[in-house]
């Protein structure tokens, strides 16, 4: 009975609406579909969305690693607070983060005013998009890496040191390869999340077509112009891409867990 209810609710709320998206696309001929998803404005939005998501995820891979490392390895005042704060981007509604980041990085903002004289325009530029996407992706990297760093064998590092390896060598040759699967997973999760992000980006990006317009916003714009076919076609592309990324993360994890199990 519980199973029946579970399936019914799942079907009504998730499966039927989602399949609707694909069925709607079927109404388009392939040529129409192709035109919709490869028009210059759309392609420009892909470039921005994927590029900014990639850079944001890469920044998070570096600083997320640093934060996770500090949280696991060191004891310092404020560590617990810092640990809790990592989840702020999950807990803070995206619209709120969006206007907050915009205010900080705009021309007269706390940080923007110092960037302006340097010729750096943070808000209303692709840089702003990267900033917003870095903000929302951070917890994914930190939370994926923390358990992996906790599981690191202290002895492997001691062994490396006793064999004459210095800090950098131990890090590059022993620690990094061991946590690499987790790092890659965290990176991919942050990247996938950034691709679909909307709320935190629309305020800071400035939404100039062809320049600072992300794909999610373009879908909304098309919708507001009653271009349902165009919106649907682009949505299908984005959906397929994020499914593909998540599938590869799953494969990646399965691959590494098989490797790990053999060791145990």
């Amino acid at each position: 009975m519980t199973l029946g209810y579970t399936l019914l609710y799942l079907t009504l709320i998730v499966l039927i609406p989602l399949s609707g998206l694909f069925i709607q696309t079927m109404n388009l001929s392939f040529a129409e579909f192709w035109n919709h998803v490869t028009s210059p404005r759309v392609v420009a939005s892909y470039r921005l969305t994927f590029g900014a998501s990639f850079i944001g995820a890469a920044i998070n891979a570096v600083f997320g690693f640093l934060i996770a490392w500090c949280l696991v390895r060191y004891r310092f005042p404020g560590r617990r607070l810092m640990d809790a704060l990592v989840d702020l981007p999950f807990a803070l509604p995206t619209a709120v983060s969006g206007i907050a980041l915009t205010t900080i990085f705009s021309k007269h903002g706390w940080i923007g005013q110092y960037l302006e004289p340097l010729g750096i325009k943070a808000a209303y530029s692709p840089i702003g998009v990267v900033i917003a996407l870095t903000f929302i992706g951070l917890p994914f990297v930190v939370r994926t890496l923390q358990p992996a760093i906790e599981e690191l064998e202290k002895e492997a590092e001691e062994a490396a040191a006793s064999l004459g390896a210095n800090r950098l060598q131990t890090f590059l040759r022993v620690i990094l390869p061991t946590v690499f699967p987790a790092l890659l997973t965290g990176f991919a999760l942050a990247f996938a999340r950034a691709l679909g992000e909307y709320g935190s980006v629309v305020f800071i990006s400035g939404n100039m077509p062809g320049r600072t317009e992300i794909t999610s916003l373009l879908i909304i714009t098309k919708l507001e112009q009653y271009d349902f076919a165009g919106a649907t076609a682009i949505a299908v592309v984005m959906l397929v891409v994020s499914f593909a990324i998540l599938l590869s993360i799953n494969l990646l994890q399965w691959w590494f867990s098989v490797g790990r199990r053999r060791v145990a």
């Binding site: 799942l10 609406p17 989602l18 998206l21 996938a192 999610s216 879908i219 984005m238 959906l239 998540l246």
Partner: peptide, 25 residues
């Protein structure tokens, strides 16, 4: 089933809204 339950997390919020417009719009 477990994967399907997680599905909404994989869908961008804009697309989550769009699917309902496509159904009930």
């Amino acid at each position: 089933l477990i994967t399907l339950i997680d599905l909404p997390f994989a869908v961008s919020p804009i697309i989550s809204g769009l699917i309902f417009v496509l159904m009930f719009g």
